[in-house]
Simulated assay, not measured.
Amino acid sequence: MSDALLTAYGAVLLDLDGTVYHGSRGIPGAAEVIGEIREHGTAVRFVTNNASKSPAEVAAHLSGLGIPTEPVEVATSAGAAARLLGERLEPGADVLVVGTESLADEVRAAGLRPVREAGPGVAAVVQGHSPHTAWPDLAEACVALRAGALWVASNVDATLPTERGQLPGNGSMVAVLRTATGLEPLVAGKPAAPLLLAAAEAGGTSGAVVVGDRLDTDIAGATAAGLDALVVLTGVATPASLLAAIPAERPRYLAADLGGLRREADELAIGPRPDWQVKADGGRLVVTGSGTDPVDLLRALCATAWETGHTTCTPGDTQARAALDELGLL
């Protein structure tokens, strides 16, 4: 692995759901790649926007999937939110918690006092995902925010991936309070920078690569933090969404899965590829070539699409047609 992508970075910051696992199922090959990263001596940090579980719970879940993990290797948006609060509030200040007890524990660890009801002494509201959040919880937060409390959201993900599909995430609950108060929270998790910067610092380096499956959180977060990013196609991102990505959501590297970390950086970089030719013609991307790897074609397609704004693809030969069909772009 001496020439692999990971050798260029001091730490690999891994998203979880859609990158390392799908709910209770590990993504094939992920455990082996993470083991190789560690053997190489590169720091691994698992970075999640999910504020409902503690680092110890996340580490236990990963360990159960064959990825031995210590809590110190896990960075959650709950922890990042608590750090934001600790930087802005006096020690011992009351913080109204909308979320799980794990979030309350993070607030407590930051030297603050978690409470569940609005009152004259509440200095801030912190909001993280909990499947049990209900109207009374939001009502208490609304009262505190209208009274001038600082508002910190662990993340603003509109949906949460589950084994039943995409369900309402913390961002949907944040939207309720945004509508009710007209206010905007400070955001700790991806795509804001604090969570990823804290994870890179915990990995002992400012030179880290972010690996994830969502353009609007993982890749946008890397951009906000000034870090390089590798997007994988094991979760939310699709070839079509990559072609249409806005500048803030464009990764430097692209791979089918975490196995890409074994390959050289130049092989994974978005840009022209020797076995594929992509030309913009009449508002379309015309593809020809002799390549056998559709993902390699996608790297070339993204480079031209981002330069020209064209996202419709047309095959110029049989080889290109097969590759575009496999990518779902026909």
Rank of each mutant, 00 (worst) to 15 (best):
residue 182 G to D: 13
residue 190 K to G: 04
residue 222 A to Y: 05
residue 187 V to M: 03
residue 189 G to Y: 03
residue 187 V to R: 10
residue 191 P to E: 06
residue 200 A to I: 10
residue 198 A to G: 08
residue 188 A to E: 00
residue 218 D to Q: 12
residue 181 T to E: 08
residue 200 A to R: 04
residue 216 D to P: 00
residue 205 T to H: 15
residue 186 L to T: 00
residue 206 S to W: 11
residue 204 G to V: 05
residue 201 E to N: 03
residue 221 G to F: 09
residue 218 D to C: 09
residue 193 A to I: 05
residue 208 A to I: 11
residue 184 E to Y: 04
residue 210 V to A: 04
residue 214 R to F: 07
residue 205 T to Q: 14
residue 205 T to G: 12
residue 219 I to E: 11
residue 220 A to K: 14
residue 200 A to S: 12
residue 206 S to M: 09
residue 197 L to K: 13
residue 206 S to P: 06
residue 208 A to P: 08
residue 194 P to H: 04
residue 205 T to I: 06
residue 219 I to R: 08
residue 207 G to A: 13
residue 191 P to T: 09
residue 215 L to D: 07
residue 209 V to Q: 04
residue 190 K to R: 01
residue 214 R to E: 09
residue 219 I to G: 05
residue 201 E to A: 15
residue 206 S to C: 12
residue 217 T to G: 04
residue 189 G to N: 06
residue 181 T to V: 14
residue 197 L to M: 14
residue 204 G to W: 12
residue 215 L to I: 04
residue 198 A to C: 07
residue 200 A to V: 11
residue 188 A to I: 00
residue 186 L to H: 10
residue 195 L to C: 03
residue 199 A to R: 12
residue 206 S to R: 15
residue 220 A to S: 08
residue 195 L to R: 01
residue 183 L to M: 15
residue 211 V to I: 03
residue 187 V to G: 02
residue 207 G to C: 12
residue 220 A to F: 00
residue 217 T to A: 06
residue 211 V to C: 05
residue 183 L to G: 13
residue 199 A to S: 13
residue 195 L to P: 01
